[in-house]
Amino acid sequence: MLRFANAYLLWALLLVPLLIIIFIIIRRWKKKALAAFGDKAVISRIMPDVSFSRPTLKFIFFIVAYTLLIIGLAGPQVGTHIDEVKKKGADLMILLDVSNSMLSQDFAPNRLENAKSALAQLINNLHDDRIGIIVFAGEAYVQMPVTTDYSAAKLFLNTINTGIVPVQGTAIGAAIDMGMKSFDFKDGTSKAMILMTDGENHEDDAVAAAKNAHEKGVAIHVIGFGSPQGAPIPIYDNGKQAGFHTDSVGHTVISKLNEDMCKEIALAGNGVYIRATNANSGLGIVMDQVHKMQQKTYDSKSFKDYEDRFQFFLVIALLLLVIEFFISSRKSLRLSRLKLFEVKKP
């Protein structure tokens, strides 16, 4: 398979036919101009050092070198193909709470950044498991479908913040339902969800959603972020903290970890509940539970890297340009003196 890293440069090859046409026109014009002076044989005797064929040879070298140079600069790459491989693992859907309460700073720098840091470490330790990400606040959105592309997972993870979901709140049940819709149950792989939240559910029946997921063979593991004592929810203006959220009477809102809710969801989902700390996110324990599930084989496509081949084109192009440079437009005096086919008179 062949591809070009800078395919847009190939448009420069459109100049090749144009240059050939211009060269032909100029050659014909020169021939007509010389013909106006007299017979070609006479002109050849008047200008014995002028070569009429070498300019054509020089142009051929130049046009071939130009073509190879453009192809080389376009970055030809070859050798890539797709191998069908068999992998054995589980499907993991991460449900990440991005409500404003996750900005509380009882975990430095805040709950959300701790959760993202833990997820980054999880992704680094994955091998054959597939992972997807759903973010939720008042609504739930699929941030990344289930995939084995861990590099893409890290990129998606870096873009997550509390502003990614326009509607605030904490709809854990909606996130679980969306996770169920995102799974492909036809492939037969084991499936689990990892819910990362402070447990402040105000929108729906998360326990019922977890129970429904368990009935369909999906385990719900919960990691709680926050402290029972809680912390105020900061307000940011242009990236700077501008105070804290207050209630209708002006009191500062304290967001606390709702462990009871987290435990109920984990119990209904046949999973485990872990309370994260600054020293331990609890993902290690959760992944131990995931690895205990029956690992089934699924098909996956493995892409080999493309190999650059521009070097060959550039080397040949430069070599031709050097040769073209040293080809003189005049005849060689030494060669002209060699009359190999002249018959000497006795």
Rank of each mutant, 00 (worst) to 15 (best):
R309Y: 15
D184A: 10
K186I: 06
Y141Q: 03
V98W: 00
H251V: 10
G188K: 12
T252H: 10
Q105H: 11
I134C: 01
N6L: 13
A153I: 06
S281R: 06
T147A: 08
G72V: 08
S190F: 03
I265F: 12
S332P: 04
N124I: 07
Y273A: 04
D83W: 06
L126K: 00
Y66L: 13
A174T: 10
A65Q: 07
L57D: 03
L112K: 10
N270T: 07
L73K: 12
L283G: 03
F313H: 10
A33I: 08
I194N: 02
G224L: 07
Q241L: 06
V207P: 01
I274D: 04
G72E: 06
D198H: 12
Q105N: 09
G89D: 09
M193S: 01
I133F: 06
K304P: 04
L73I: 14
A174Q: 13
I26R: 03
S44P: 05
R130K: 13
Y236I: 04
V315W: 13
R45C: 09
G38Q: 08
H251Y: 13
K154T: 05
V253L: 13
I323H: 05
T159G: 11
E324Q: 10
I176W: 06
G230T: 05
F326D: 02
G138K: 00
S51Q: 11
E264W: 07
G239I: 05
L15M: 09
F341H: 12
V165N: 08
A5R: 15
S190I: 05
F225Y: 14
A5H: 11
I71T: 15
A7C: 04
V16G: 00
T277C: 01
Q77W: 07
D177P: 06
G169H: 13
S99I: 02
I133T: 12
I274A: 07
L10K: 10
S101M: 08
K304G: 14
G38I: 12
N280F: 10
F4K: 04
V272F: 15
N110F: 04
L122H: 00
R330T: 09
N161M: 14
A276Y: 08
I71N: 12
V142C: 02
F23V: 00
I22H: 08
K40Y: 11
M261C: 05
Q311M: 12
T246L: 06
N201P: 04
G239T: 09
I46F: 15
V98Q: 02
K30R: 15
K211G: 02
L340T: 07
A5G: 05
Q121I: 14
K292I: 04
A276L: 13
P17D: 00
R3Y: 14
F37S: 09
S227P: 01
G226D: 03
N124D: 15
K263G: 11
E264C: 04
M193C: 00
L119H: 00
E264A: 13
I285M: 09
N238P: 07
I164H: 03
R45Y: 10
T67F: 12
K304Q: 14
T159S: 12
A152T: 14
I43M: 15
A210G: 05
F61H: 08
V290N: 07
N6G: 05
L9H: 07
G72R: 08
G89W: 10
K301Q: 15
I82K: 09
K263P: 11
R28D: 12
